[in-house]
Amino acid sequence: MSALSFTTELGRRRLKARRPGVGATRPGFAWAVPATVFFLLFAILPLVLVAVLSFTSWDGITSPHFNGLANWTKLIDDPVMSQSIWLTLVLTLLGVVTQTPVSILLGVWAAGRQRNRAVLSAIFFVPLLLSATAVSVLWRALLDPNFGLPGQLPWLFGDGNLLGSQAGSIAVLTFVGMWQFTPLHALLYQGGARAIPQVLYQAAAIDGAGTVRQFFHITLPQLRNTMITSVILMVVGGLTTFDTVLILTQGGPGTDTTVSAYYMYEQGFKNFDFGAGSAIALVLVVVATLISLAVVRISGYDKMRSTAEGI
């Protein structure tokens, strides 16, 4: 509260000081108009329309007509829908758990000055340049049970029926997601690690801390904000996973990997039931918003605390 009043006080003083100057005042509302209009037109308006559509029955051909809560009551009783939310959360969690450690290690390593670092980093970052579709098609071919890796390594893959069971499909989706997105997060951590003041390491070295202790007591705590950013990106990406599912599993076997975003697509664009699709979309929006808020709250990101205090 005190910080807030201080800023307004500061603002007022600044405003007063600059009033004589012509046209040099703080940016007015007009500056925000282009962004605001785009946001209203392409984010808020569609969201409102989706909310309205979720109370209608619409095949996309004739005009939609209201059917009250029919879509919603159907959705509540729909085992595929509740399973899809559960699956989405599992995939998101698995994504965070698998991608974070690997990308922290890679990122911190890439921030150093070792020989060949630049060349190896460039190779690690290649998956980042490929589209999700290309990545999925590539792995689909590599994991073909007869002509791909599983056919050559039966001791590791058994009969190679990776996409024939729920556990196998989830493992494949998690692995491909990790392969695809780790470079992006490693890049974030590389930047974060580079920004850590060297004096901290020098002081620790004088105190006799080795590389491992330096990593756990300096690097990791200093990367806290980077970690939060990265996790939020992973959570948002995980909740909207779609392309890898579409190409690798098509929600199968059966409905075993039908995540919410894919289910929404299926209802809307395959079954032409845009009312039901909109209801799923709205659930997804609400769930994603709640989770993002929770992450921000729990991590204390909203406090914008610095990791460089006292340096």
């Binding site: 994991l143 073909d144 049970p145 002509f147 009969d159 024939g164």
Partner: peptide, 14 residues
């Protein structure tokens, strides 16, 4: 049909 048919596709040439 063997036991890994669910991991095989026609559309990708499998």
């Amino acid at each position: 049909f063997g036991n890994n048919f669910d991991s095989v596709k026609f559309t990708d040439g499998g």
